[in-house]
């Protein structure tokens, strides 16, 4: 590559302490880190892609069960969580911006805000899981799908009720994998906040913050797909 310095030796002697020895310039190092992150996110898309594929197949097979299952989860908490996550993406973007302009306190502040929103999301998710647990909607031995018995709606036939188990399996697998990503994100956020407060991200070297931002937005986008698929789409036909 043209960005390579002419000789290694020259580079090795006057190197920025942040520059790893396999790179010639900080520019190259930064580009490389970004590309790596994008490739990683592509693997993540494929990872969730498998689940989305399974979702598509079963939604086609058991549409009534998906409608019934989707009607049983709380649209209020889902919407709230969506809002929380979108806000956290905003604060994350602000954090990256703060790092770029070298505002350390702002950076720490926005990162902490992102952390807080992430935790709120997880708490709400936990509440939703708890509700499902008490309603016996967790697939497995104790699974039992009661007819929601809304006035004016036909009762859910028994075969459909048993098929909602598949819907809930996918619900828990998909939101569970997403929550796992959130938990990992929260862990990394803690580390970032600690490092940021020590001034580890000067304006010429905040790739880690940027890359984490990409990750956080990615997790956000996954939710943006999960929310309509699990909460909204199948709900409509039953809501006359």
């Amino acid at each position: 590559m043209d960005s390579h310095a002419a000789t290694v030796e020259a580079g090795l002697h006057h190197r920025d302490p942040e520059l790893h020895n396999q790179f010639d310039t900080l520019e190259q190092q930064k580009d490389t880190a970004h590309l790596g992150m994008w490739v990683f996110l592509i693997t993540e898309i494929m990872f969730f892609g498998g689940l989305f594929g399974a979702y598509l197949v079963y939604r086609n097979l058991y549409y009534p069960a998906f409608v019934a299952g989707s009607n049983s989860i709380s649209i209020f908490w889902g919407t709230l969580n969506t809002a929380v996550l979108i806000c956290s993406s905003l604060t994350m973007a602000m954090a990256v911006h703060s790092a770029a302009i070298g505002a350390r306190k702002l950076l720490v502040g926005f990162l902490s805000l992102t952390l807080l929103l992430g935790l709120i999301f997880l708490a709400v998710k936990g509440k939703e899981y708890y509700d499902k647990w008490t309603e016996h909607h967790v697939p497995g031995a104790n699974f039992h799908f009661d007819d929601p018995e809304r006035p004016g709606e036909a009762p859910v036939p028994a075969d459909v009720a048993s098929q909602t188990s598949i819907y809930f399996s996918l619900y828990f697998a998909m939101t569970g994998m997403h929550a796992l990503h959130m938990i990992i994100g929260v862990g990394i956020l803690l580390a970032l906040i600690w490092k940021a407060s020590r001034g580890s991200f000067p304006p010429h070297h905040y790739t880690m913050v940027e890359n984490f931002g990409l990750y956080w937005h990615f997790v956000d986008i996954i939710w943006i797909f999960l929310f309509p698929l699990l909460y909204l789409i199948s709900r409509t036909p039953a809501m006359h």
């Binding site: 058991y62 009534p64 036909a154 036939p157 028994a158 075969d159 048993s162 098929q163």
Partner: peptide, 20 residues
């Protein structure tokens, strides 16, 4: 017989129980 709700014949109601 097993998943009667999957396909309902035209003009009939979805009332058949499953024999799963």
């Amino acid at each position: 017989i097993l998943n009667p709700s999957a396909k309902i014949v035209y003009g009939f109601q979805n009332i058949m129980p499953t024999f799963q």
